[in-house]
């Protein structure tokens, strides 16, 4: 089991209330950065409303920004949000599944850059995100679909109220003595 390095979250347009609830339930001292792709229109101001109840800062990154643990990076309107080991990479490639930002590009790049150190959460309700999620999972990342209900396509389902425990389980590392 490798250490968690990154949490990626994808959600369709209708799910912003659930995303807000998820962000509100994040631990205030999350040891990893969170990358978030939500389907959105060009004019939609999203960061403000998502940040309202979130204990972590929510920001729309510029291209090539570094990733800092404990911050939530929201995909800006009109760009795909990608990630590599040095930080944020934005892309103006065409829409995928009719969406830009889309979830698949984020999940795919996270799998490439972080492999098994990624945790991925998907709010269902759109065709986007599934390919990326299965890509993450096949590379050893931990993935789940948000919400109540039966498992979908073999992916674990996590109710919103349990997501905190799910995250804690992922980021739990036995304490060890560290020599400076």
């Amino acid at each position: 089991m490798s250490l968690l390095g990154l949490l990626v979250v994808g959600a369709p347009q209708g799910a912003s209330a659930e995303v807000e609830a998820l962000l509100a339930s994040l631990p205030p001292r999350l040891p990893v950065p969170v990358l978030l792709a939500v389907h959105r229109g060009p004019q939609e101001l999203l960061a403000g409303s998502l940040a309202r109840r979130c204990p972590l800062p929510v920001l729309e990154p510029d291209d090539k920004d570094e990733l800092v643990a404990g911050r939530v990076y929201l995909a800006p309107a009109g760009y795909h949000l990608l990630v590599d080991r040095s930080g944020v990479c934005l892309s103006r490639e065409p829409a995928e599944h009719g969406q830009r930002p889309a979830m698949d590009p984020l999940f795919e790049s996270a799998a490439d850059a972080y492999g098994p150190a990624v945790a991925g959460l998907l709010f269902s309700g759109h065709e986007d995100g599934w390919a990326g999620l299965s890509n993450l999972s096949s590379r050893g990342g931990r993935v789940a679909v948000m919400g109540e209900g039966d498992p979908v396509e073999g992916v674990e389902r996590v109710p919103l109220k349990d997501v905190k425990d799910w995250l804690v389980r992922l980021s739990y590392v036995p304490r060890m003595k560290v020599q400076p």
Binding site: L82, C89, S91, E93, S109, D112
Partner: peptide, 9 residues
Amino acid sequence: HSRPLLLRR
């Protein structure tokens, strides 16, 4: 070149 972008293309 930006590696994630390059890989996608």
